[in-house]
Structure formats: structure tokens, C-alpha cells
């Protein structure tokens, strides 16, 4: 079984100017530590069922920028319809990694529907017309899929089967969702040369 933290290190090593939207739970602290160079370019949120949707919105708004969604089995199961929308919209700049540890890790590890072995999120994605959708269980294969997914001109979904063990000894990120949003928005403003949260008018 792969370790999510090691997967994140392999993915992070391939990232530079991409923008990342990520899910809630332990993955937040792990990503904060596994890819420290991506902190400003990552939106750390606690938003079950919003992650890949937000990433699609970002991908539509910034068609020349590669967007990475780091979703989870629990989060994607909450909002499966987004896969149908991805299948129809076919964004050319969106790479989705689903960390599938078959559990709701952030609340202590009760199982999700993928734990039964009968529910396959990559098959669901393929059924939505996302042809590049794969279950990955090997670290080197994961790295290879990341390389392909980051260069794909169509939506690319990896369901990464990982153990449910939180990386020990990592520091907690202690900013909240609002501070994280400002950090992310300022990074987008700086790198895209746009104003998103600008000054008020004086009148």
C-alpha cells in the first residue's frame, strides 16, 4: 500500500507554477510539509465536496495554467456529479488526484464506500467519459501517471490507493480558510498579473 506522504513528495517534485486546490483532513498538513515550495500556490481548504469543482472553475478561469485537484475518496463520493461535468466539459488543463485511503481519516478512520472493494472511482470517471482515469497502487507508477497527467490535454484522474496512516512528526498548518484564501489569491494576482481582491473605490 502506498503512503500518501511519499506520493505527495513525488508529485510535488514535478510541480512549479501549477495551482493546487486540496481537500480537507490530514492531507492538508501532509501537503504543507511534503511540497513546501507550493504553499502559496496551493489553496488549503476544509471543503468536503467542493475541491474538484473549485479546481474546474479555476481551470476554466485560467485556461493557460495547469490546475491540480487533490481530492479524496470521501470528498469525491460526496459530489460524484462533478465527474459527469468534467466528462462533458473536458478541461485541457486539469489534473485530478484522488487520495483514496478508503476511510474518513480526519474523523478517526471510519470506512468510506471504496473500502468494500466494489466501488471503483476510476471506473466511475471512465463511465463519465474521462478516458484517462486509473487506479494506482505503486509509487513509481504513481510518479509516471503524474508526469502524464500534468502534460495531458484532457482531464486526467488518478485514484491513488494509500494507507490511512498520517505521516508522523509533521508540523500542523495553523492558518484558517480565510488567511489561506488571501495567500492563494495574492499568489494568483502576482503570477497572473491580475487584480482579484483589489482596493475599494473612494466615494
Amino acid at each position: 500500500m502506498m503512503k500518501r506522504y511519499e506520493c505527495m513528495q513525488r508529485l510535488g517534485a514535478q510541480l512549479d507554477d501549477e495551482l493546487v486546490i486540496l481537500s480537507l483532513g490530514g492531507a492538508v498538513d501532509e501537503w504543507y510539509n511534503a511540497a513546501p515550495h507550493m504553499r502559496e500556490g496551493s489553496l488549503f481548504q476544509q471543503q468536503l465536496g467542493c475541491v474538484t469543482g473549485e479546481a474546474l472553475g479555476l481551470a476554466i478561469g485560467l485556461p493557460n495554467r495547469r490546475i491540480v485537484s487533490l481530492d479524496t475518496d470521501g470528498g469525491l463520493l460526496f459530489d460524484l456529479g462533478i465527474l459527469a461535468t468534467l466528462g462533458n466539459e473536458k478541461p485541457e488543463n486539469l489534473f485530478v488526484v484522488v487520495w483514496d485511503n478508503e476511510s474518513y481519516q480526519s474523523i478517526g478512520g471510519p470506512k468510506t464506500h471504496t473500502a468494500s472493494g466494489t466501488v471503483n472511482l476510476a471506473e466511475i470517471a471512465r463511465g463519465c467519459g474521462i478516458e484517462q482515469a486509473f487506479v494506482v497502487r505503486d509509487l513509481d507508477e504513481f510518479e509516471d501517471h503524474c508526469r502524464r497527467g500534468l502534460g495531458a490535454k484532457e482531464p486526467y484522474v488518478i485514484v491513488a490507493k494509500t494507507d490511512g496512516i498520517l505521516q508522523p512528526g509533521i508540523s500542523r498548518k495553523h492558518s484558517d480558510g480565510r488567511e489561506d484564501k488571501y495567500i492563494f489569491v495574492r499568489h494568483v494576482e502576482k503570477t497572473e498579473g491580475v487584480s482579484i481582491m483589489g482596493p475599494s473605490e473612494h466615494n
Partner: peptide
């Protein structure tokens, strides 16, 4: 889902 996508569009500027 639409709300989430709109939120992402906001973040893009």
C-alpha cells in the same frame, strides 16, 4: 457543484 465551480472562477480573477 455549481457553487464550487463559481468559487473556483472567483479565485482565477
Amino acid at each position: 457543484e455549481g457553487a464550487a465551480i463559481c468559487g473556483g472562477v472567483f479565485l482565477s480573477g
